[in-house]
């Protein structure tokens, strides 16, 4: 494992552009190795044109978020069954 990653926690700001709840404390399952993880625990790579988060267990990609002028691309197929606290409405 290299040292050029940080924690998924650092993606909180970018994710807050998209989601109305804090997703860093959300938990889910890696669709590749089935490990349960909080988004904050993912290995986050920021050197690419976007944010790439990988599973701390198997290092497969769990989500990708890319921003372009006036738009965003979000791919979360690597993380299933995302669970987060949500106040009853």
């Amino acid at each position: 494992m290299t040292e050029d990653h940080i924690d998924g926690n650092a993606a909180g700001g970018a994710l807050s552009d998209v989601f109305a709840v804090d997703l860093t404390a959300a938990t889910g399952q890696c669709s590749s190795c089935a490990q349960s993880l909080a988004l904050a625990e993912a290995l986050l790579y920021t050197q690419a044109p976007g944010l790439i988060a990988r599973c701390p267990g198997c290092e497969e990609v769990v989500f990708r978020l890319v921003r372009g002028p006036g738009r965003a691309w979000l791919d979360m197929r690597g993380m299933t069954c995302v669970q987060f606290e949500l106040a009853d409405s």
Partner: peptide, 11 residues
């Protein structure tokens, strides 16, 4: 787990 804080989208 710490309570999630519902803030709405941040600006």
């Amino acid at each position: 787990m710490a309570r999630a804080k519902i803030l709405g989208r941040l600006t």
